[in-house]
Amino acid sequence: MSVAVTTDGLGKRYGRRRWALSDCSLEVPSGHVVGLVGPNGAGKTTLLNLAVGLLSATTGTISVLGGNPSDRPEQLARVGFVAQDTPTYSHLSVADHLHLGARLNPGWDAHWAAKRIAETGVDPTQKAGQLSGGQRAQLALTLALAKRPELLLLDEPVAGLDPLARREFLQTLMIAVADDGVTVVLSSHLVADLERVSDYLIVLAAAHVELAGEVEHLLATHRRLVGPRRDSVSLPGDCRVIDASHTDRQTTLLVRTDTPIHDPAWIVEDIDLEDLVLAYMGQTSNVERNRRSGLRVQP
């Protein structure tokens, strides 16, 4: 399996103090639709900007499609990017934007781009500044896809869109994946959307990678355990507690394990993607909470 993005100890510092991303090491396999989730300020935008070469790393390395995400035309041609808030030139028309794409990209598919715009029902003579959020996002996506990239990076492209526009945007995206097999990395807050479209998940929190892996594998190896209240938990060796909460009578755990749990004291439940994401996004604070509540996890 080839790798789309590899990072090793990647870090980005703004100013003197603030680390937007630190010690990030991961591999994003190609051929996937990768969901990148995390709270605001977790480093999602920074990671994507580093991958497309808009930013340069403070520490560590990043390799995109085997190349350096630098300022080289050959590299830029292979990576499509849709930035947060889908910026477009407000005083240029939709047709101008397509012309721009044709002028600036050697692999530009003019036929496909024109077809896409026609399908979205946007008047090509309309100024980009007058488009609705959904139409502008469609235009930005068309620009990014018509250059025929191998990797497409999208930074919160659907965040500001209404449900219908969001659905249309994701439909366009998924059809492109079905047609070209383009690898997609998509950052989003909307886990319900990611549940549909992504088959690989990366959770960033507080500038760190908390979790990365294929969605199916992640869901298969995480379980919710519900049982009577206990302060000292004995679990199989490979079992790691991600999240724990207690009431007077009951203890609920979210654990990662590769082996099934047979302890009859626990009710073992499957979890969905949202449970998984929330558990990992809250993990940093949970470590503190667990320490205070006196929970002991025995190895």
């Binding site: 639709v33 994701l170 439909q171 998924m174 994946v177 549909r196 992504s198």
Partner: peptide
């Protein structure tokens, strides 16, 4: 299916 449901083709 992908065009209708906006889901990952791999699914």
């Amino acid at each position: 299916v992908v065009a209708r449901l906006a889901i990952n083709p791999n699914t």
